[in-house]
């Protein structure tokens, strides 16, 4: 039933909007148990709402048309109330609400963030304005791009490093706020391979709009391959190469004050994203722009020009140093 309703709703939506999609952040095509449970509940409420809407607005419209003033009509009869009617229209909404409340409370307990045993643990940390993902059992730390295996339960344990954010990837279910000094939880199992887009949903300051994320749901084997690559040490660098020069620039610049980079011993800071495998990420600036050399160079020179309020200070580097640094970062696959 819900599936059929869903097609109907989507068709309605498309015809109303004249938009053909695709809608990468839609809540109406969920691909996880969590998302589907919510969607079924919403669909249930939606149809009740449509029914009530049609009946009540219909009554209103009928009354407006039927009882419009006509010249010469006798004065209306003064009615002051009707006990049976009052009881009736008190009970009617109450009965409908029971039909809404029961599945609502059932769904609350099904979606409360309790993960089954053996779920993959991921720590999510919100920062102004980027996402950190840590896999404590795998020893992997990455940013803005969450990789998950299809069909396996996942337990997100989430907190914030600064202000309140809200983790939200609509295709995989609802959002949950992340709050400093508190751990909030989400649990779900993704049922389809694909890339799901999302973003911070709780206003978190100047670049709230630019705090985006993606969830890459892979087959088990592809996920394992990604983990293996992340677990592998830093990519080797040929002596005398431009990458080696870039690493030297990195090591002597302010980069090391905020970032971790495994092959630069002094770079162990955790204020900014871990850059050990930054070259493997498809986007930079928390999903703002494609991970390309020119974007990287612009970002390093003045990230705030791309992302208002960015906490990363502008880096003034000679052009050849900047080129070398970009080449080095690109090589961190």
């Amino acid at each position: 039933m819900p599936r059929r309703h869903k097609r109907w709703l989507t068709t309605l939506l498309l015809s109303v909007t004249g938009c053909a999609g695709p809608f990468p952040q839609t809540t109406l095509a969920p691909k996880s148990d969590f998302g589907i449970a919510i969607d079924q509940l919403f669909t249930n409420i939606f149809w009740w709402a449509v029914a009530v809407f049609v009946v009540v607005e219909g009554l209103l419209l009928y009354a407006i048309i039927r009882f419009r003033a006509r010249p010469g009509a006798p004065p209306p009869k003064a009615t002051h109330g009707h006990t049976a009617l009052e009881i009736g229209w008190t009970l009617a909404p109450a009965v409908i609400l029971v039909f809404i409340a029961v599945p609502t409370i059932q769904t609350i307990f099904r979606t409360s963030g309790q993960a089954p045993d053996g779920a993959m643990q991921v720590e999510v940390i919100g920062h102004q304005w980027w996402w950190e993902f840590r896999y404590p059992d795998l020893g992997v730390v990455t940013a803005n791009e969450l990789h998950l295996p299809v069909g396996r339960p996942v337990a997100l344990a989430m907190t914030s490093a600064d202000v309140i954010h809200s983790y939200w990837a609509p295709g995989l279910g609802g959002k949950r706020d992340v709050i400093l000094g508190r751990t909030s939880r989400l649990a779900f199992t993704a049922d389809s391979i694909g890339t799901y887009y999302g973003q911070c949903a709780e206003f978190c300051g100047e670049s709230h709009a630019n705090m985006r994320l993606r969830v890459v749901v892979d087959s088990a084997s592809a996920f394992d391959a990604w983990v293996a690559r992340e677990q592998a040490g830093p990519a080797p660098i040929a002596p005398g190469s431009v990458e080696e020069k870039g690493r030297a620039v990195f090591a002597r610049s302010a980069c090391i004050a905020c970032h971790t980079m495994e092959d630069v011993p002094a770079a162990r800071a955790v204020i900014g994203p871990n850059l050990t495998h930054v070259g493997a990420r498809s986007m930079i600036g928390s999903e703002m722009v494609e991970n390309r050399p020119d974007h990287l160079a612009q970002w390093i020179a003045n990230s705030a020009a791309m992302k208002p309020g960015s906490k990363m200070p502008p880096m003034v580097l000679p052009p050849e140093d900047l080129t070398a640094l970009v080449a080095y970062l690109r090589s961190r696959q």
């Binding site: 919510i38 919403f42 409420i45 609502t104 769904t107 609350i108 279910g173 609802g174 959002k175």
Partner: peptide, 9 residues
């Protein structure tokens, strides 16, 4: 309905 609200809020 809190679960629906998790998508809507």
């Amino acid at each position: 309905a809190p679960p629906a609200d998790l998508q809507q809020t």
